[in-house]
């Protein structure tokens, strides 16, 4: 990697101050970057894809900020909690299995021990053309340069939320659980704290694939608030991939169900591996509401979720795989004890 200035921040306010930006670049291209677990940033710096001139180390906040807490409203997760800490928490495993599973099925044990929840949701795409600077065309890496994946090898690329400028898949898992459960995200910045729907954190590529979230470069994720609901216990995360572990999803489904006598009161559904951002499948949720959870009805919901896809050749299979993944997840979730 290239040389950079290293700053260790004492607390979030100090970090935000250290990260005040002199450029107008979006966070992905900003010259100052936060370093928490380092599992994405350092990787991309070694590949010369991210070239910050200043790195603000926030990993020391881990023991001085919020951890894992429960109250009647729901679950609160501090941004500096590691993936492993959250995945292993017995109450999360019991009451929010969708969260534990989305974390357990991601990465490797070593990475889960390092990576923080705040960093996890900002993990960047695994698009091969993005991750290799010798490819000239990548609008995400080099705005305006084009997209090598559109007519390239795009087996793992997205079919939902794409644009003419980018079809890179959002790679994470945990974010789908947060989207499905309707979580909020807490953000600290130079002008104070704000709280937004987690579902609104990520933005589809449209004309600007380099803009991946609504965050400003000097804003820091501090926590997640997950509301309790009648569907949180009967929930699961299903991840379909070429190998059993340590791989990104070809398709995944985060599903939480409120069932009454086999009839769906409410279904919460998010899709991964198939979209450019964590994808809430509202059409599928609506299709299930008030109906018996049969495989035929699940299939109808899945059809609704993938009604408007755009494929690019090697990923032509993804809508069908996505539908089947959702059907399987719904039928499996129905068997979970509430």
């Amino acid at each position: 990697m290239r040389g950079f200035e290293y700053v260790r921040a004492a607390d979030p306010a100090d970090a935000i101050h250290a990260a005040r930006q002199t450029s107008s670049a979006p966070p992905t291209l900003a010259p100052t970057q936060f370093l928490a677990g380092g599992t994405t940033l350092l990787d991309l710096m070694k590949l010369d894809i991210m070239r910050p001139t200043r790195v603000v180390d926030i990993s020391g906040f881990r023991n001085r900020t919020d951890g894992i807490a429960f109250d009647r409203q729901g679950l609160h997760l501090g941004a500096f909690v590691t993936m492993a800490e959250a995945a292993d928490h017995p109450d999360i495993r019991r009451d929010y299995p969708i969260i534990a599973q989305s974390l357990d099925l991601a990465a490797s044990a070593q990475i889960r021990n390092m990576a923080t929840l705040g960093g996890n949701v900002l993990q960047r795409t695994r698009c091969s053309y993005f991750r290799d600077t010798s490819w000239q065309a990548c609008n995400k890496r080099s705005p305006g340069s084009g997209c090598a994946a559109l007519r390239g090898l795009n087996r793992k690329h997205a079919v939902l939320g794409t644009s003419e400028n980018c079809i890179a898949t959002y790679p994470g898992d945990f974010a789908q659980a947060l989207v499905a459960l309707g979580a909020d995200i807490e953000i600290a910045g130079p002008s104070g704290a704000r709280r937004v729907k987690f579902e609104d954190l990520h933005v589809a590529p449209d004309a600007h694939p380099e803009i991946e979230t609504i965050l400003n470069p000097d804003e820091l994720i501090t926590g997640f608030a997950v509301p309790a609901g009648p569907w949180t216990r009967r929930s699961l995360y299903l991840k379909v991939r070429d190998r059993e572990s340590y791989e990104f999803a070809l398709a995944s489904a985060a599903v939480a169900l409120d069932l009454h006598d086999g009839v769906v009161n409410e279904a919460r559904i998010a899709l991964g591996g198939v979209a450019t951002k964590p994808w809430r499948a509202r059409e599928a949720e609506a299709a299930l509401k008030g109906r018996a959870l049969s495989e035929a009805n699940a299939r109808q919901a899945a059809e609704a979720a993938f009604a408007t896809t755009k494929t690019h050749g090697h990923n032509d299979y993804k809508p069908e795989l996505g539908r089947r993944t959702l059907v399987r997840a719904l039928m499996q979730a129905a068997t979970v004890e509430a």
């Binding site: 695994r126 091969s128 010798s134 390239g152 070429d242 190998r243 059993e244 340590y246 791989e247």
Partner: peptide, 21 residues
């Protein structure tokens, strides 16, 4: 990539080998 005869999955995350599981 047939367009320019270049490999696109030159790491062990994308060149798959089995894991223990």
């Amino acid at each position: 990539d047939p367009r320019n005869a270049r490999y696109t999955n030159k790491d062990l995350a994308d060149y798959l080998i089995p894991v223990n599981a």
